[in-house]
Amino acid sequence: MLLQSFSRAVQLLLSGNREVFFIAFTSLQLSSISILISSLISLPLGVLLAFKDFSGRRVIIIILNTMMSLPTVVIGLLVYSLISRSGPLGGMGLLFSRGAIIIGQTLLSLPIIISLVYGAISRIDRRLPETLTTLGAHPGDIFIMTLKEGKTAILSALLAGFGRVIGEVGVSMMLGGNIRWYTRTLTTAIALETSKGEFELALALGLILLVISFAVNLILHWLVKDER
């Protein structure tokens, strides 16, 4: 079955099946946007956690690490209860939309990215920000310099987050609703085809997901390496 699925995956990619491409693109797009939003929040927070001493920092880090094991379905449920028409944000009509998936995936990736960014930045010499400050650098400049210093590790953090969201099915299924030509992602399509007994096709879609993930890793590593 594995071999057949493999050839099916290649076939699907080569035949230019419009729906498969749409589904793959949806997965890639939603996960990328989620990671982008998540990194806008996580990078400053991670740096702050690493460089600023304040009471309760340990507690925050422990909580973040715990949140990394939060099941996707639970995050789906939390967001669902907020954006359903009967929830506090129901008026926005977000449930079963792409926006809903992005919200869920962003939340899903926050703990893992913040934790890993924190880990990456903590390894940087703490004298760096101090020295930069005495040299008269703005906090903004220090932030950028720090990120550049921890570039490779931060990249790994973002890719770990990306891996978590593009491979998840709970949030996408519950908040997106697996709507054809709209919120159907690779993972919800895999779940659907599995339920229909189309194991070969499901596995082929899984292989396509891996190909995408591989390509994203390759491109980002190339981008960062190029900067050196």
């Binding site: 990328s32 946007i33 926006g99 992005i102 981008l223």
Partner: peptide
């Protein structure tokens, strides 16, 4: 290049 990538992403969000 990274900025370019981000801008592309934001633009594609318009289709959401």
């Amino acid at each position: 290049k990274l900025y370019l990538l981000m801008i592309l992403l934001v633009l594609s969000a318009a289709t959401l």
